[in-house]
């Protein structure tokens, strides 16, 4: 079989960016989504419920630059209750979805509030729990309408264009879909979260194929939360409950599984150096201990370097994979070795 003889791609770990910052400031707390601007700036949504400044969008780059943040907890203009998704529009504006307020807020490139739109409901154009945003090459906005189990195509101003999907487990049906992405030819990939699969659609929403079954083997998923596709057509799936990112080629041939291997970021290093007792104890710290559980979530809770609820995946302009490692308040970055 040709697929058997094909060599698989290799994923190299690059770096970790981040630091737990629950009251705001440099770092993230419970990041849930990110968007990479063409210039490489990474916009990260933190969804920390414990502090009014914990909910916000932080701006950084993957070489540890920090450029500030915007937004806070609340339902006023430019504020968020339960932000879920972020995307950059073709005009460089920033769009953030809030699944509690059922609204999309539009910011200038520097994070100044501009406008918002969104109406709760299930009629065309109304939304119930927007969970992912992506712009098409034509400048339309795809919104994953989570509780309505459909994908809606809207204008950047919130006018309804079209939609597809309904509740269920058949082709083109969804069970609480979460993340989505488009490939270079405009095909749409949806993380069909509670159906444990990824569905692929034409740019117009025609079902093409789907992949994945429930489980923890190769090519199986347990609640996939997000999907990203790179320029080579490789598909990256945040396999959320399984605590890994799986990589497939465009024909769904399994390529790699990443478990996470975070290192100490410069922000973290600065923190440790201010706390000599912790720095000292950490010098004797073995991050990869043997654990007495098989439950992946629990393993991740005990092994700091692993992903713990990897929630969102994006590809940056250089083709690097950025994984939002939500419960560890950081991004882990990988690079595909070109074949």
């Amino acid at each position: 079989m040709t697929t058997e003889t094909r060599s698989k791609i290799k994923m190299n770990y690059v770096d970790t960016v981040g630091f737990g910052a629950d009251i705001g400031g440099r770092g993230f707390h419970l990041p849930v989504d990110l968007s990479v601007r063409p210039d490489g700036r990474v916009f990260v949504i933190s969804r920390s419920p414990m502090h009014r400044r914990g909910i916000r969008v932080g701006i950084c780059d993957i070489t540890h630059g920090w450029y500030g943040e915007f937004g806070s907890d609340g339902d006023g203009d430019g504020q968020f209750r339960s932000p879920t998704a972020i995307a950059h529009g073709p005009d460089d504006r920033v769009y953030v979805a809030d699944e509690e307020l059922n609204r999309i807020t539009v910011f200038t490139p520097d994070g100044v509030f501009e406008s918002n739109w969104g109406e709760s409901g299930s009629a065309p154009g109304q939304i119930n729990g927007p969970s992912a945003l992506k712009f098409t090459a034509d400048g339309d906005l795809l919104v994953v309408d989570h509780h309505n189990n459909r994908i809606q195509k809207m204008s950047p101003e919130g006018e309804y264009i079209s939609s597809w999907g309904s509740p269920g487990s058949g082709e083109g049906e969804f069970n609480l879909p979460w993340g989505l992405d488009l490939d270079s030819s405009g095909r749409v990939y949806v993380a069909d979260w509670r159906n444990d699969r990824i569905q692929r659609f034409s740019p117009d929403g025609e079902f093409i194929d789907m992949f994945g079954t429930h489980g923890d083997g190769e090519g199986q998923f347990n609640r996939p939360s997000d999907v990203a596709v790179d320029d080579g057509g490789f598909i990256y799936v945040a396999d959320w409950v399984n605590q890994r990112v799986q990589v497939f080629d465009t024909r769904w041939n399994f390529q790699a599984s990443l478990r996470g291997q975070a290192t100490v970021s410069p922000w973290a290093q600065e923190y440790l150096e201010a706390n000599a007792d912790e720095l000292d104890a950490r010098s004797r710290f073995n991050p990869y201990i043997e654990v007495d559980t098989d439950v992946a979530h629990e393993v991740s809770a005990r092994v700091e370097a692993y992903f713990w609820d990897p929630i969102a995946v994006e590809i940056d302009p250089e083709g690097r994979l950025i994984v939002a490692d939500s419960l560890r308040h950081r991004l882990q970055i990988y690079q595909r070795v070109p074949k």
């Binding site: 630091f19 737990g20 005990r302 700091e304 308040h329």
Partner: peptide, 8 residues
């Protein structure tokens, strides 16, 4: 909890 959250 810094730098990366608590370790169970």
């Amino acid at each position: 909890m810094r730098p990366y959250g608590y370790i169970a």
